[in-house]
Amino acid sequence: MIVSDLAPPELHRRLRSDGLRLSSGPFNCRIQTRISEIIPELIRLYAHHPVIPDDAFVDFHIAIETGRGLHRWFRPQARFLVDGVEPFTPLPRAQALPMIEWGLNWCITAYSQHVLILHAAALVRGERAIIMPAPPGSGKSTLCAALANRGWRLLSDELTIIRLDTGQIEGLARPVNLKNKSIDVISDFAPDAFLTAPVRDTTKGTVALMAPPADSVRQLGQAAWPRWVVFPRYVAGSRAAWAPLQTGAAFLQIADNAMNYHVLGKKGFAAVSALVDRCDHFGFEYGDLDEAIGCFDRLAGEA
């Protein structure tokens, strides 16, 4: 059973009471919220995710609650709770929906030292995956959203999870976080994709979430082997160009983008080494999405 198999009134009931239990690849989540205005968009973002039985193991028990005391009505706030603990300060209620995504990212990075976590997007063609670590503003999420709408299977937009034993990527197929100008770019580029209404004035500017493509969610759990690591950089007006990267430089950049490299110690070093050995590494500059996708398709076709 998937989320959209349940009728909206039932989804509302679950979210407001015991919680909606769903699976996002390696992580099972139970989501509760009494902030009803976010529910219609929330259930569209997770429409294709499997609903898990009530007695299944849940990794993260999360709740988005209204503000305390006066903040319920006056300058209304939203609070993120994981199993009753509030790990960070409330945000304005208007940001409740993206807060779920940011909060889940927090849960994954705080509680998952059994895997290597890269701050990177990852997509796959066949079984071979491309990993794109990049700082904010590099156009990583835009490129990721565009590829996901042109036949690449979305594994993750924000956190790439790499198994320490096999080196495989575990896909999450969670919503893609789009910021500022990239919201319009993606609505024009992929008119069929579902985007939430923009949320303004967050710490990252205006954000909107794009629902992961149904196929990407359906194929969660299928093997994905890292094959390329690409560091993208959007430069307005530039022609798409690859710049091969030496393994030493790639190692340093990947380690720098690993959220828990310092926690994993030797295991982290071994995991990054194995990843570097398994992949080809490139810098990639682009100014046009269609041209960039052509480059990625050719890369996947050649290998």
Binding site: P98, M99, T203, M259
Partner: peptide, 10 residues
């Protein structure tokens, strides 16, 4: 106050 930085949390 513990602000949430959705981009990087370690």
């Amino acid at each position: 106050s513990v602000p949430l930085d959705g981009e990087r949390q370690a």
